[in-house]
Deep mutational scan, measured.
Amino acid sequence: KELVSALYDYQEKSPREVTMKKGDILTLLNSTNKDWWKVEVNGRQGFVPAAYVKKL
């Protein structure tokens, strides 16, 4: 599985998104959309802005 690192804090703005803190390591589930990537963090799945994470 592919991992990404959070470059910035992000506070979810809808139920489809997830909150992350800078430095968090997230499991990348889907990166086909260039703007929003689906990740899993702390057992929750949702979307984060692609520009806020980088692949490890």
Results as ranks from 00 to 15, higher is better:
residue 36 W to H: 03
residue 21 K to H: 10
residue 23 G to N: 07
residue 14 S to D: 11
residue 30 N to K: 07
residue 24 D to Y: 05
residue 3 L to H: 09
residue 45 Q to C: 12
residue 10 Y to F: 07
residue 45 Q to L: 08
residue 49 P to A: 02
residue 2 E to W: 14
residue 33 N to K: 07
residue 4 V to G: 14
residue 24 D to T: 07
residue 17 E to M: 06
residue 52 Y to N: 05
residue 5 S to R: 15
residue 13 K to R: 14
residue 4 V to A: 13
residue 21 K to Q: 10
residue 21 K to S: 09
residue 33 N to R: 10
residue 19 T to Q: 04
residue 55 K to S: 10
residue 19 T to Y: 04
residue 42 N to Q: 09
residue 26 L to Y: 10
residue 50 A to D: 01
residue 36 W to R: 03
residue 20 M to V: 10
residue 53 V to M: 06
residue 36 W to Q: 03
residue 37 W to I: 05
residue 21 K to P: 00
residue 46 G to P: 01
residue 43 G to N: 08
residue 50 A to I: 03
residue 8 Y to L: 10
residue 29 L to C: 07
residue 54 K to S: 12
residue 13 K to M: 12
residue 10 Y to G: 00
residue 25 I to V: 12
residue 37 W to S: 03
residue 50 A to G: 04
residue 36 W to D: 01
residue 13 K to T: 13
residue 34 K to D: 11
residue 14 S to A: 08
residue 15 P to C: 11
residue 40 E to I: 07
residue 47 F to N: 04
residue 41 V to I: 15
residue 34 K to R: 13
residue 4 V to F: 12
residue 32 T to G: 10
residue 7 L to W: 05
residue 53 V to W: 02
residue 36 W to N: 02
residue 46 G to V: 04
residue 30 N to L: 10
residue 37 W to V: 07
residue 4 V to C: 15
residue 48 V to H: 00
residue 17 E to I: 04
residue 11 Q to D: 14
residue 40 E to P: 00
residue 23 G to A: 04
residue 25 I to M: 08
residue 55 K to L: 14
residue 22 K to V: 09
residue 9 D to F: 05
residue 39 V to L: 03
residue 37 W to A: 04
residue 30 N to S: 13
residue 8 Y to E: 10
residue 46 G to R: 02
residue 32 T to A: 12
residue 26 L to Q: 00
residue 45 Q to E: 12
residue 56 L to G: 07
residue 24 D to S: 06
residue 11 Q to N: 14
residue 40 E to H: 05
residue 4 V to Q: 02
residue 35 D to M: 14
residue 34 K to W: 08
residue 26 L to H: 02
residue 15 P to V: 10
residue 25 I to T: 08
residue 44 R to V: 09
residue 1 K to C: 15
residue 50 A to Q: 05
residue 36 W to Y: 08
residue 5 S to F: 15
residue 49 P to D: 02
residue 14 S to F: 07
residue 56 L to K: 06
residue 29 L to G: 00
residue 15 P to Y: 10
residue 52 Y to D: 02
residue 42 N to K: 09
residue 28 L to K: 01
residue 40 E to F: 06
residue 37 W to Y: 08
residue 11 Q to K: 13
residue 40 E to S: 09
residue 11 Q to L: 13
residue 25 I to C: 07
residue 26 L to A: 10
residue 45 Q to I: 15
residue 39 V to P: 00
residue 15 P to I: 10
residue 9 D to W: 04
residue 12 E to W: 07
residue 48 V to G: 01
residue 8 Y to K: 12
residue 22 K to C: 07
residue 1 K to R: 14
residue 43 G to K: 05
residue 46 G to F: 08
residue 15 P to D: 13
residue 19 T to M: 04
residue 40 E to G: 05
residue 39 V to A: 01
residue 8 Y to S: 09
residue 6 A to L: 02
residue 45 Q to K: 11
residue 37 W to L: 05
residue 5 S to Y: 15
residue 1 K to D: 10
residue 14 S to H: 12
residue 14 S to L: 08
residue 7 L to C: 12
residue 21 K to E: 06
residue 54 K to P: 02
residue 48 V to T: 02
residue 26 L to K: 01
residue 34 K to Q: 12
residue 12 E to S: 15
residue 41 V to F: 15
residue 55 K to R: 14
residue 38 K to Q: 13
residue 28 L to Q: 00
residue 44 R to I: 08
residue 44 R to G: 03
residue 5 S to I: 15
residue 6 A to W: 02
residue 42 N to R: 11
residue 56 L to D: 07
residue 37 W to C: 05
residue 38 K to P: 02
residue 31 S to N: 09
residue 18 V to M: 11
residue 22 K to D: 02
residue 27 T to L: 14
residue 36 W to M: 06
residue 31 S to G: 11
residue 20 M to H: 01
residue 15 P to K: 10
residue 13 K to E: 08
residue 12 E to T: 09
residue 34 K to M: 10
residue 49 P to V: 02
residue 49 P to K: 04
residue 3 L to K: 11
residue 46 G to A: 04
residue 51 A to H: 13
residue 20 M to K: 00
residue 38 K to Y: 15
residue 27 T to Q: 11
residue 56 L to S: 07
residue 23 G to D: 06
residue 38 K to M: 15
residue 37 W to T: 03
residue 2 E to R: 13
residue 46 G to M: 05
residue 37 W to E: 01
residue 2 E to K: 10
residue 49 P to I: 03
residue 48 V to D: 01
residue 16 R to I: 12
residue 16 R to G: 14
residue 50 A to R: 10
residue 3 L to W: 13
residue 10 Y to M: 01
residue 29 L to M: 07
residue 1 K to V: 14
residue 33 N to G: 11
residue 39 V to D: 01
residue 4 V to I: 09
residue 10 Y to R: 02
residue 23 G to Y: 06
residue 50 A to C: 08
residue 35 D to R: 14
residue 16 R to P: 05
residue 35 D to H: 15
residue 38 K to H: 13
residue 19 T to W: 05
residue 12 E to F: 07
residue 17 E to Q: 13
residue 20 M to C: 07
residue 26 L to G: 09
residue 24 D to N: 06
residue 53 V to T: 04
residue 28 L to Y: 02
residue 7 L to H: 05
residue 47 F to P: 00
residue 9 D to C: 07
residue 26 L to S: 02
residue 37 W to F: 08
residue 17 E to A: 07
residue 54 K to V: 15
residue 1 K to L: 14
residue 47 F to V: 07
residue 36 W to G: 01
residue 17 E to H: 07
residue 22 K to Q: 11
residue 9 D to Q: 04
residue 32 T to W: 10
residue 22 K to N: 04
residue 16 R to V: 10
residue 22 K to S: 08
residue 28 L to F: 03
residue 49 P to Q: 02
residue 14 S to G: 13
residue 55 K to D: 06
residue 51 A to N: 12
residue 28 L to C: 06
residue 40 E to Y: 07
residue 25 I to A: 04
residue 20 M to R: 00
residue 38 K to C: 14
residue 16 R to L: 13
residue 35 D to L: 14
residue 47 F to Q: 03
residue 43 G to M: 05
residue 39 V to R: 01
residue 30 N to F: 08
residue 16 R to A: 12
residue 54 K to N: 09
residue 4 V to P: 02
residue 50 A to P: 05
residue 2 E to H: 12
residue 3 L to G: 03
residue 29 L to D: 01
residue 8 Y to D: 07
residue 46 G to N: 01
residue 54 K to R: 13
residue 1 K to I: 14
residue 13 K to P: 04
residue 41 V to S: 11
residue 10 Y to W: 11
residue 45 Q to M: 11
residue 22 K to T: 08
residue 39 V to E: 01
residue 19 T to K: 04
residue 39 V to M: 02
residue 39 V to W: 01
residue 6 A to H: 01
residue 44 R to W: 04
residue 8 Y to W: 12
residue 4 V to M: 08
residue 23 G to L: 03
